[in-house]
Design a protein around this nucleic acid. Structure first.
Lengths: 329, 329
DNA sequence: GTGAAAGCGCTAACAA
DNA sequence: TTGTTAGCGCTTTCAC
């Protein structure tokens, strides 16, 4: 591996001159520059980015931290963040937080291998975030409320989402409404559930405990929970799935039993994943404004990076996506 | 930002002792270690990973480079690579190659910000890869054949895939078969097309130029190409879409015109994206063994990293996924 | 068991 | 315009 030292030597100039030449500094003469560039070419010289970062004390890259880098659900988010990063002249990398404390994500956060981060990974606990964030190392958190300097939250109003979804069912004449939840410790799941409860209470409806099941936010969980409901004999008139993944599983369970949606049971989801539009019937759901959320998060990060002050918390509102899985009673 | 120097000073020990203590070296006494750890805690000391990487001349992380970090299609790949990375004690980051020469991906490759990379990004040209790869910096390429030291290819046999897909249609009695291609410069598209041609020729069938359209591998392209075919009046009996995304667009175009699949026209795709199973009718397609491919690529990378020799090229075979979009004539 | 010091490859202030 | 030099924060050899 040739270093800049080798290049300088071969070109017969000082180290600094080589550095200037290679970085396009205007104070080096065209002739010298040519010599240096030629030497670099000959040696197949490649700058060591790490050394540069160390010297500059900045990496010019930000990290997007996700539990699982690959969820289709993140697509929009990644795009919008990337767009903003590029337009600010920054690079973006994605890291996974799988593995918790020894995950890549935590390493990048703790060891400051990037200049800032956007986090959407519920398996990273508050403590890690609070410790990592500091002056000059802003973190934008997208999945929780958290109160600490150098940390800002960009949230989607899940309580409202849960309320709107449930309200939509009620307005369509449904009274016996089941809720399939995510993991018990999920902040998102709790909010949606609260919204559900609020709408139910407001309409004077009672939640039935046999119709509150856990599906862990995964397809398989939605499937099992739905099976359970079917086996109980009495079907609710509508089911609110805490996310679309579980709804997909639920739809499958109903199909297998020959129970038709929305004729025999109405279904509503949450997230508006890509699949939802293509299910049959297409899934009525709640869309989170992921593009806006990502864009906002990224903008805030760069504002913090440039020293500007921003609020502690931003809350975006959801959008109802009406399709064909809910029947008017 | 406290550095190790500050920690050493506060603990009243030498720099090196602090380093040893913090890294759990056995030669420092329990008492000294306690002092150091306490000082670090007080100062909220965080090791600077970049400095460490520079000193060690290695980062312990590998990069997975994708054109677009978010394609649902990559999900399996990412998982399998991550699994192998973790089991080798390495970290994984994903970078996008959007932006070509000034993309994050190229920067990470050229400036050796990682120890090695797996590349699946057709917008990065050979030259960049050849220049970047060298002794101690292995690159595994998943989307092309490329001949250079320090570069190894892991490929899925696209020609065979195209052949199998087309052959499947022919075996089901189809003779008038259209092919919707990806971008003209796409290596994958070309291979699939060649496989198509081989199967056609073998069966003594002629390709009709009016039924060879470009859909650029995107949904919208599949939609337009299909519209075009419909407008031409005479429908082929089957269409082979170069990938599932285009097939999804095509199915939509047919639905809009009230043309039913597979009764009036059969459809086959390529890739087996998540959606395919949920389309109605569910899409018959060709699955690429992405899990195996990712796993193999990662294993090879670590083998190269540890100095072992591996072959220049590995080729995996595809799998036929029979569903309901092709009719037996 | 602890400390002094060299140096990873680079940038940038300062001197010439 | 070019060269000399001091670090960035860390690990690690070597001497004590």
């Amino acid at each position: 591996m040739a270093t800049i030292k080798d290049v300088a030597k071969l070109a017969g100039v000082a180290l600094s001159t080589a550095s200037y030449a290679l970085n396009g500094d205007s104070k080096v003469s065209a002739k010298t520059r040519a010599k240096v560039v030629e030497a670099a070419r000959q040696l197949n010289y490649r700058k060591n980015g790490i050394a540069m970062d160390l010297k500059r004390s900045q990496t010019n890259t930000i990290a997007l931290i996700l539990t699982d880098m690959s969820g289709p659900y993140y697509s929009e988010l990644i795009h919008s963040v990337q767009e903003v990063a590029i337009s600010n002249g920054y690079d973006l990398i994605a890291c996974s937080s799988m593995g918790g404390r020894d995950s890549t994500a935590v390493k990048f956060l703790r060891e400051k291998r990037v200049d800032g981060a956007i986090v959407l990974a519920s398996n990273i606990n508050n403590e890690v975030l609070i410790e990592a964030a500091e002056q000059g190392f802003p973190i934008i958190v997208m999945d929780r409320e958290i109160n600490s300097d150098f940390l800002v939250s960009v949230l989607v109003d899940g309580e409202q989402g849960g309320y709107v979804a449930t309200r939509y069912l009620i307005d369509h004449g449904h009274k016996r409404i089941a809720y399939i939840s995510g993991p018990a410790n999920s902040y998102d799941s709790q909010l949606r559930y609260q919204g559900y409860l609020r709408a139910m209470a407001e309409a004077g409806l009672e939640e039935q405990s046999k119709w509150r099941l856990n599906g862990n936010f995964v397809r398989e969980g939605g499937y099992s929970a739905t099976k359970m409901i079917i086996m109980q004999g009495e079907l609710p008139s509508a089911i609110f799935y805490g996310n679309d993944e579980m709804a997909v599983g639920g739809v499958k369970a109903f199909q297998e039993q020959g129970i038709s949606i929305p004729e025999q049971v109405s279904v509503i989801g949450f997230d508006d994943i890509q699949l939802s539009e293509y299910l049959s019937p297409s899934l009525t759901t709640i869309r989170q404004p992921m593009h806006e959320a990502g864009s906002l998060a990224a903008h805030l990060l760069f504002q913090r990076l440039s020293g500007a002050d921003v609020n502690r918390e931003y809350k975006l509102t959801i959008e109802m996506i009406e399709r064909n899985s809910v029947r008017q009673l």
